[in-house]
Simulated scan of single mutants.
Amino acid sequence: MSTHPTPPRGGEPAIRVRGVEKSYQDLHVLRGVDLDVAPGSIFALLGSNGAGKTTMVRILSTLLKPDAGTAVVQGHDVVTSPVEVRESISLTGQFAAVDEILSGRENLVLVARLRHLPDPGRIADDLLARFSLTDAGSRRVATYSGGMRRRLDIAMSLVGQPAVLFLDEPTTGLDPEARLEVWQVIQGLARQGTTVLLTTQYLDEAEQLADRIAILHQGRIIANGTLAELKALLPPATVEYVEKQPTLEEIFLALVGTTAGTATASTSEHHESGKDQS
Rank of each mutant, 00 (worst) to 15 (best):
D119G: 10
D119Y: 12
G121K: 13
G121Q: 15
I123Y: 10
I123H: 13
A124P: 10
A124R: 13
D125Y: 11
D125Q: 15
D126V: 15
L127N: 13
L127M: 13
S132H: 13
S132F: 10
L133C: 11
T134H: 14
T134K: 12
D135M: 11
A136Y: 14
A136H: 14
G137P: 12
S138D: 15
R139M: 10
R139S: 13
R139N: 09
A142V: 10
S145R: 08
S145C: 06
G146I: 01
G147P: 01
G147E: 02
G147Y: 00
M148H: 04
R149L: 01
R150T: 03
R150I: 07
R150N: 03
R151N: 04
R151W: 03
D153H: 01
D153I: 00
I154V: 13
I154G: 02
I154Y: 03
M156K: 01
M156H: 01
S157Q: 02
S157M: 02
V159W: 00
V159D: 00
V159L: 06
V159M: 02
G160F: 06
G160M: 05
G160T: 06
G160R: 03
Q161E: 11
Q161C: 10
Q161L: 12
P162Y: 03
A163S: 15
A163R: 01
V164Y: 09
L165R: 01
L165W: 01
F166L: 09
F166Y: 14
F166M: 09
L167W: 06
D168T: 07
D168A: 09
E169M: 05
E169W: 03
P170H: 09
T171I: 06
G173S: 04
G173V: 03
G173A: 07
D175S: 06
D175G: 04
D175T: 07
P176F: 05
P176I: 04
P176C: 04
P176S: 08
E177N: 10
A178N: 07
A178R: 05
R179S: 05
R179H: 03
L180G: 06
L180Y: 10
E181F: 07
E181G: 04
V182K: 02
W183S: 09
V185M: 08
